[in-house]
């Protein structure tokens, strides 16, 4: 990242990398948690927006490069929209 010119210490780099990989591990090794999360997210969103439920994608990603000021991992939910319900 261009504005992060300060040389980051390796201890901090280790922590940030670990956080991302461990949260991803926790999701990958706990499909039940992902299913519950997916279900609850769908319940909330689908009363407002007509979405493609089968295409919902949940992942934990690094926000580095994204427009986020944090170093920590982010929960990324991608749901294709089919139509608008509420006006």
């Amino acid at each position: 990242m261009f504005f992060n010119s300060r040389k980051q210490k390796s201890g901090e780099i280790a922590k940030n990398r670990l956080q991302l990989v461990i949260y991803q591990d926790r999701m990958n090794t706990n499909p039940e948690l992902v299913d519950r999360l997916r279900y609850d997210i769908l319940q909330v969103i689908k009363s407002y927006i007509d979405i493609d439920e089968g295409a919902l994608d949940i992942k934990i990603s690094s926000p580095r490069g994204a427009a986020l000021g944090e170093d920590g991992p982010a929960l990324e939910v991608n749901i294709p929209i089919k139509g608008w319900k509420m006006r």
Binding site: S10, G11, A14, K15, L18, Q19, I22
Partner: peptide, 17 residues
């Protein structure tokens, strides 16, 4: 010594995770 220089994770870092 490494922790002092920021080149090793601290107990707090590990407990955070």
């Amino acid at each position: 010594d490494l922790i002092r220089r920021g080149e090793m994770m601290t107990l707090e870092d590990v407990v955070d995770i």
